[in-house]
């Protein structure tokens, strides 16, 4: 039993260590890139290279988030917690779309 617990903790720790940051930039009112594949536990880091605010959000169940107003130059990170497709939009600019595939 103890071995299993140790193994579980070790695996969890390994997963955490493997979690990576995936950069999504926002430039010219566009998510760059517009589609990305990540793994559970990875962080999506939203950058804002535009000279004005954005507000990324997703209403998809399990990975719902709203990062709020993001000023130019700010970085905001969101952890992908569950497997699935995450459709992301900007609350200000409805033409901005990003698809995140979480495996």
């Amino acid at each position: 039993m103890r071995k299993f617990v140790t193994l579980f903790i070790a695996l969890s720790f390994a997963t955490l260590c493997m979690a990576k940051d995936v950069i999504i930039d926002q430039k010219d009112k566009t998510f760059i890139p517009t589609k990305v594949t990540v793994h559970v536990g990875d962080n999506i880091v939203f950058k804002n290279s535009d000279g004005f605010a954005h507000n990324a959000f997703s209403d998809n169940k399990n990975n719902e988030f709203d990062i709020g107003m993001q000023r130019p130059g700010e970085d905001i990170s969101v952890k992908m917690k569950h497997v699935g497709i995450v459709e992301v939009e900007c609350a200000i600019h409805p033409n901005m779309h990003l698809k995140i595939v979480v495996k």
Partner: peptide, 26 residues
């Protein structure tokens, strides 16, 4: 227009897009 949504501070009581969902930006 870029189709974007903004509170332009008119001071009226219409909550606008916020009625769709209570998202602070709306």
């Amino acid at each position: 227009t870029d189709g974007s949504f903004h509170n332009i501070a008119l001071g009226d009581s219409d909550i606008g897009r916020y009625a769709m969902k209570k998202r602070p930006a709306w």
